[in-house]
């Protein structure tokens, strides 16, 4: 059964997850590139990424190119799954006749926050 994921549902985090998902599996994006596309500040993006990383939804890799530090961000398989589940839950609420491919019933509308790292 798909459940809404409160951690992902926050608008900025929803945009981050949507952006990373659109990049495709296995793709890493530089922090500044993601910041520019989403039109966020360094601090704002960093704060939300930290929460998503803590939940295991994104991976953050810090590296150096020459002496310049660079940070790359990617969606983890767990994050991809959680995001897909969250979208399925949203769509199912809008259209309750939708039945998931595995035959499960449509999403619940439980708005209680998920615990950090919960599977959605």
């Amino acid at each position: 059964m798909s459940q809404l994921n409160e951690l992902i549902h926050q608008p900025t985090r929803l945009r981050i997850m949507a952006a990373l998902s659109a990049l495709g599996p296995g793709t890493e994006v530089e922090f500044t590139y993601l910041r520019d596309i989403l039109d966020l500040t360094d601090g704002n993006l960093g704060t939300h990424l930290a929460k998503l990383e803590e939940a295991g939804y994104v991976a953050v890799r810090k590296t150096f190119v020459g002496r310049k530090p660079r940070t790359f961000v990617s969606l983890t398989p767990h994050g991809q799954h959680a995001f897909a589940e969250h979208l399925a839950a949203l769509r199912a609420i809008l259209n309750p006749t939708l039945v998931e491919p595995n035959g499960a019933s449509p999403a619940t509308t439980d708005t209680q926050p998920n615990r950090k790292g919960d599977k959605a």
Partner: peptide, 20 residues
């Protein structure tokens, strides 16, 4: 959760994906 809020969330996802 309001239907309108959900609709807006899905629009936000679509817009972001397209922008990327």
């Amino acid at each position: 959760m309001q239907t309108e809020e959900i609709r807006q969330a899905l629009v936000l996802v679509d817009q972001t994906s397209q922008k990327v």
